[in-house]
Design a binder for these strands. Sequence first.
DNA 1: TATTGTTATACTCTATAACTATA
DNA 2: TATAGTTATAGAGTATAACAATA
Lengths: 144, 144
Amino acid sequence: MDVSAGSEARGEAWRRIRELAHTPEALGCLRDLAEGAGLTPGIAKALLHLSAEHPTSMRELAAVLRCDNSYVTTVVDGLEARGMVRRRPHPTDRRIKIVELTDAGITLATRMRAAVDRPPASFAALSEEEAATLVGLLRMLSAD
Amino acid sequence: MDVSAGSEARGEAWRRIRELAHTPEALGCLRDLAEGAGLTPGIAKALLHLSAEHPTSMRELAAVLRCDNSYVTTVVDGLEARGMVRRRPHPTDRRIKIVELTDAGITLATRMRAAVDRPPASFAALSEEEAATLVGLLRMLSAD
DNA sequence: TATTGTTATACTCTATAACTATA
DNA sequence: TATAGTTATAGAGTATAACAATA
């Protein structure tokens, strides 16, 4: 009896999950949006982690992007030069800078997030019941 | 009635699939292997697309890596310098170069492929029957 | 003339180290 | 002294254009 995670079916499931996630559909749409707005991929990725509701310090942005602090400076410079964000001083700790979306930044970030979150067209092949079954199985595979 | 691909359940399924695919587990293991062998990520990625059974031309490698021909030259230079591949002339068309794995390259490529193909540990939570159900649903979402 | 691969070059992505200002 | 951010710089990833060899 095979008690490992590596049965035939598990292996195929894992392969298909990886293929789906790397489908060029969502990523391509996102890239088109970013290119249309004159953003490089790195800058677009940072924009995806900003929202109007949650102001973010440079350091926090480095943490979510899993990159060095100095690179955040580069990326936020790029976002600022394109009018997508502005730097605001923190109200009480003047070492900290808050990265705040401009109206143009909010518009673009919202559209990019929608592009990322939209399931590929092939998901329409699932009935509601099948989609619910799929979610149930996927929930067994990840903690949150 | 909602006939789009964007129902609640489909959206959650898509989000969880993306999260699973980006789990640091497999990618981290792969990076450790590559680093241990002194490979940069780009070179390691190319190695993953080579196999002893299927000799590959530079041009074919550019196609599967979706990169420019000239970058393949850079990457194969790196693989050759590390003793992982050698360039062989094509038997009939002398414009073409075949990228051939060395014994060391075969060993490392095999271990890297195993690391990528191994499902995350959380897959052990699925019974055989659940794994089969999952595969059935995922097959509806991708063509091949 | 078209195709395979290489060279030269340049731009983007990203990190390390040294630094400034503030706490 | 420790922390947030910036600057200077360098290395890795990747593309474009010009080119050589072969078809």
